[in-house]
């Protein structure tokens, strides 16, 4: 499996390739457009005025605590739930009136694996291929998810991570323009998670628009071009993982080991501080660290404010 590692320094690169591909295909630039989306359960507003734009070819991560309206929003976009109000367009279609043709252009990887354990990987993937007007090649898809060696194995004999890969295979077998990935790596060990990320990066590189939900901030940071934070039933901020919540320009903390012990200095100009320290120590600064708030810090602050 060939994988492309994108460096964190060029988070825009992927989306640009994807967008160019989409434009060349003569398609609209927007994959998902949501305005003032509302969903009421009884007298509770689960979703309370969500606005969202997802561009073609980008990986968009939707973050938010449980009960924030994230799953409800996704399910409305997938055509699984009816909305109470607002405008929604997914690939130019209202998901409140799903058609087979529209469904054929989507891929959905649900939160839980539930396929028949008695079937083999190839049997289930080949079967799902039969639902779509223009499916991808079955063996190619199995290879893309890294299960070629397991193609003949029954699902019952696969590990959790491998079954998740089957879910992704079923999500992409129809060659979707838009892929929903709902908490895809929950319960993975760190190594399996990294390998899974590479699979998703490969899909994004191929131009698939991906809407990802996750509770792992490092996952959002590694995969997403843009991140939206949903809290209290509305989107509180959208931005690149590096810029979210003013992260890029937030105060940096420079730490080092001085004669009197560990020192920490909060500063807006960390480079200058490091240069001065370097002069003072005449070279290497002992145990030097320069940190900015992590995505997790920013995220926790954000959802904390809405509580």
């Amino acid at each position: 499996m060939s994988t492309v590692r994108w460096t964190r320094e060029s988070p825009d690169h992927r989306s640009r390739t994807g967008r160019i591909a989409a434009t060349l295909g003569g398609m609209n630039d927007t994959a998902v457009r949501v305005r003032d989306l509302r969903k009421r359960y009884g007298d509770v507003d689960a979703v309370n005025g969500v606005d969202l734009d997802i561009h073609r070819g980008e990986v968009f991560a939707l973050l938010g605590p449980n009960g924030a309206g994230k799953s409800t929003t996704i399910e409305i976009l997938e055509g699984h739930r009816r909305r109470t109000g607002g405008e929604v367009s997914v690939l130019g279609t209202d998901p409140g009136r799903p058609t087979r043709k529209w469904r054929g252009r989507l891929g959905i990887v649900p939160q839980t694996s539930n396929e028949q354990p008695e079937l083999s990987v190839r049997e289930i993937v080949a079967h799902f291929a039969g639902y779509y007007p223009r499916p991808r090649n079955v063996d190619e898809v199995i290879e893309a998810v890294g299960l070629t060696d397991k193609a003949g194995a029954r699902l019952a004999h696969l590990s959790g991570g491998q079954r998740r890969r089957v879910d992704v295979a079923l999500g992409i077998i129809g060659d979707p323009e838009l892929l929903f990935l709902d908490e895809p790596t929950t319960g993975f060990d760190p190594d399996a998670r990294r390998r899974f990320w590479r699979l998703i990066e490969g899909l994004a590189h191929g131009g698939t628009t991906i809407l990802l939900t996750t509770h792992y901030l490092d996952e959002a940071e590694a995969l997403a071009d843009r991140v939206g934070v949903i809290a209290g039933g509305r989107v509180v901020e959208v931005g690149s993982p590096l810029e979210l919540g003013g992260r890029a320009t937030a105060t940096a903390r420079v730490g080092w080991l001085g004669p009197e012990g560990r020192q920490v200095l909060e500063t807006d100009s960390p480079t200058q501080v490091v240069a001065e320290l370097s002069q003072k120590f005449d070279g290497e600064v002992p145990e030097l660290t320069v940190t900015r708030p992590t995505l997790e810090d920013v995220y926790l602050t954000m959802i904390g404010e809405t509580r």
């Binding site: 997938e78 055509g79 699984h80 087979r100 043709k101 469904r103 054929g104 989507l106 959905i108 649900p110 539930n114 396929e115 799902f128 639902y131 779509y132 007007p133 079923l170 129809g174």
Partner: peptide, 8 residues
């Protein structure tokens, strides 16, 4: 639910 989400 999964089947409902496909064009089946």
């Amino acid at each position: 639910k999964r089947l409902y989400g496909t064009p089946m």
